[in-house]
């Protein structure tokens, strides 16, 4: 009898500090498996965010940098331009990317930087204790929206993938989910494509992953999955919002 599963070599042996059930852990594994499969461990660079994934550099056994809140895409831009052979990915939460870092992600996409962005949407500021994020659902309770997000007071959630897909220079935008084994396998395919695009020089690639934050949602991991499927997916439908990489490949 043989083991048919293994810890990817692009991860260190360090135990994740994430809470039980946290989506970050799943996406770390998927990303590390992709790095292994594409054989890019020696030239991959992770740009860690501010947020629960701030210690991502402890887990990914690749070169790393941790930047100021939300500035990942700008840092990734600099590294990629200075060292074009490196494979640079910015790993960001929704507070980091869609709140304080909204300008950086929009302009990196608009410039068509040849980088990969992994965007963990858990509809909340996890690290700081559950404040409302731009992605928080209407009606969802947060410490800064104790009665639930109110459309009249706080407006509506931002669908980042749909928004970035409007930009001409963005090449590949997909939203996936980490809630079930089949969806996790699909998520990995999307992440792999987002890295392959960069290797092929095809341009800005962005994968949004719907993830649970049971701790700040005040629930259990299993009930968190129900919330993700019933509520999050209604606001954030899964799918490819843009993919012009096939056309670009032919034109190359």
């Amino acid at each position: 009898m043989n083991a048919i599963t293994k810890r990817p070599s692009a991860l260190t042996e360090a135990q994740f500090h994430y809470c039980p059930g946290c989506g970050h852990s799943v996406v770390h594994r998927l990303t590390a498996e992709v790095i292994d499969e594409l054989n890019i461990k020696d030239r991959a660079v992770v740009v860690a965010p501010v947020g629960c994934a701030v210690f991502a550099d402890k887990y990914f056994d690749v070169d790393s940098i941790q930047g100021p809140h939300g500035r990942g895409p700008a840092i990734a831009t600099g590294i990629k331009r200075a060292k074009p052979d490196s494979i640079v990915f910015s790993y960001q939460g929704d507070g980091d990317l869609a709140s304080i870092g909204m300008a950086e992600i929009v302009h990196a996409a608009a410039r068509g930087e040849n980088i990969t962005v992994i965007f963990i949407n858990n509809t909340i500021y996890g690290m700081t204790g559950g404040q409302m994020a731009p992605t928080t659902l209407v009606g969802q309770v947060a410490t800064t929206a104790p009665k639930g997000r109110n459309e009249k007071l706080q407006g509506n959630p931002i669908n980042v993938s749909e928004m970035l897909a409007q930009l001409k220079s963005a090449k590949y935008i997909e939203r996936v989910s980490s809630d079930s084994a089949p969806n996790i396998i699909k998520a990995k395919k999307a992440i792999k494509k987002a890295f392959q695009n960069q290797i092929d020089g095809l341009g800005f690639s962005f994968v949004e992953v719907l993830s649970i934050c049971p701790t700040n949602w005040g629930t259990t991991p299993l009930k968190g999955l129900d919330f993700l499927r019933e509520k999050m997916m209604a606001q954030y439908p899964l799918g490819v919002f843009k993919d012009v990489t096939a056309a670009n490949k032919e034109g190359k």
Binding site: M1, I4, T5, K6, R7, R29, A181
Partner: peptide, 19 residues
């Protein structure tokens, strides 16, 4: 049955599947 579903969802890579 060695399908690997549990491995896929396990956040902490705590499961090894043998077949």
């Amino acid at each position: 049955i060695g399908c690997g579903m549990c491995f896929q969802v396990c956040p902490d890579i705590a499961i090894t599947v043998f077949r």
